[in-house]
Write a protein that binds this DNA or RNA. Sequence first.
DNA 1: ATACTATGTGTAACCGGTTACACATATACA
DNA 2: TGTATATGTGTAACCGGTTACACATAGTAT
Lengths: 329, 329
Amino acid sequence: MATIRDVAKRAGVSVATVSRVLNQNGYVNEETEKRVRQAMEELNYKPNEVARALFKKTSKTVGLIVPDITNPFFPELVRAVEDVMNIYDYTVILCNSDEKAEKEREYIEVLKQKYVDGVILTTNQFAPEEVEEWDVPIVVLDRPLHERYPSVVADNYEGARLATRHLYEVGCRRIAHIQGPTHVVNAIERFRGYQDEMKALGLGDRQLVIQGNYQLKQAKEAVMAALADHEIDGIFAGNDVMAVGALKAVQQCGLRVPEDIAIIGYDGIPLTEMTTPELSTVSQPIYEMGAMAARILIKQIEGKPLEKFHYQLPVQLIVRQSTSRRRST
Amino acid sequence: MATIRDVAKRAGVSVATVSRVLNQNGYVNEETEKRVRQAMEELNYKPNEVARALFKKTSKTVGLIVPDITNPFFPELVRAVEDVMNIYDYTVILCNSDEKAEKEREYIEVLKQKYVDGVILTTNQFAPEEVEEWDVPIVVLDRPLHERYPSVVADNYEGARLATRHLYEVGCRRIAHIQGPTHVVNAIERFRGYQDEMKALGLGDRQLVIQGNYQLKQAKEAVMAALADHEIDGIFAGNDVMAVGALKAVQQCGLRVPEDIAIIGYDGIPLTEMTTPELSTVSQPIYEMGAMAARILIKQIEGKPLEKFHYQLPVQLIVRQSTSRRRST
DNA sequence: ATACTATGTGTAACCGGTTACACATATACA
DNA sequence: TGTATATGTGTAACCGGTTACACATAGTAT
């Protein structure tokens, strides 16, 4: 690999001049520049990013910490971040935290040592106190971690009310909610939305909450158990994966969806179009959330002002077969 | 951030000594080491990976190029790579190539400039000639790119024969194959397996190949069209996503799976357990493939010898509801 | 004519590590 | 006693960029 000194020698100039044409700053004579570019061409010179990073304390690299890329909610989010970062010539280091604070801390440490320019955190576990002392720009995705850090979230509360109301409108009166992990903020928000909407609908005393932990299997088993003990005609699952679990449980009990029990999920991942019947869901603008987080991080890195600090994106009710039935009592 | 010179000053030694305790090489007196460690502790010193990378020309970072993380085959693969790399203190830069040779080349260029220690390529597009001149260790995943590069693949040909034979054994005689993109090697291999097995079963003249391009929608539409023109009682889809497309098409035509048409997919992604009926599939050891590629890459990086250069992992037939029917003619 | 500014280029220090080499001392062996 | 070897530590060059500063020249305003 040719270095900047090789180029300088070949072009008959000093390294400073080469650096100047490289970075398009300082004065360089047109003729000189041409010679330098020629030399770079001939040597197939590519500046060494590591050397540059060492001096500039910036690496054109960002960290992206997600709980688990295997969770179908995240691939699209990750893809969005990567796409946007790519446009701005940043590179993305992917980290799976499994929601473990310990792993997150370790990753942050490593990322700092590598001079990443910023970090996007998609997590529900991190203690704000820890964050305090980080000097790296951070954007929080899918959770409002702390006032001081910019965040991008969807309107979980409103989405949950939307889903619950939708079930009511297609005739459900005994609506159960499959809840996500109680330590995850968005799960709590969705749960609150369900509660409040149920009260608003006059069904406050008919609430039924099933614990599903955002997992298919757990949701399925919990729904099976619930179906044995309770009368249920509608299920609002805290995410789409659990909605699939519910769907399987209902079908396995010999009941029909949506005729006997209507089901609606949350997130709007592609999976919802692959089931039979296709699942209604509250769709989050996943790609848009990732892309926005990436753009905000870049602004932070480049020291540009943010118009807003906390972005809450709207969600959208998507009605499919799993809740399509005649309105009835 | 404290530097090695700060530590040296505080411990009353030279930077060389600090470096020695850091890297556990050279001679260092026990007492001295203790003082140095104390100083590191007090200053909360963490060595700067970038500076180290610059000198050592190695960065404890690897690149992972996949076509599209959004394709449900890849998250598990990526996760496996990340897990193994994490154990060995490597960090993973994720790149989505969309199977475009141009994007791959650009990424490789950037990765080299960042001194990545190696690259895992999951691609079907790259021209071997380009690869020739790379000095970075490379492992090829999911495709035997070139003799000179280690590779990890699953046995696509045998898997396809397995799937086809399985359909025959549950009574199918008019077995169609939904094919993946013809420029993708594993799609071709699966197609060949289908062809050969059909011939072996004496059904050589009953072959029906449907183009699905590894996409759900395309597969669905192509199957709808095929059902109108042909008699079909079994479908072997080149991947699971297309199998879902086939399932939807069949159901939409008012036919039953598996009674009227049995369906089997390929890959063994979690999605296959989420449909109704659950999909039979030929399961690739996805996680194991990713983990193995990662381990091989590390060996390459560390200059250790490989016992084998090309690994072909076995696949496994997984029978679920979509092919579970009485054996019949 | 003088002073100031814009243009153009080179030297060398710097970023924060690693390590070759020099040097010193202690121990072992002939 | 002299020499070889193991132990222990420091100095300074080096990795490949960036940039402060010095210096030179040309143009322009006063």
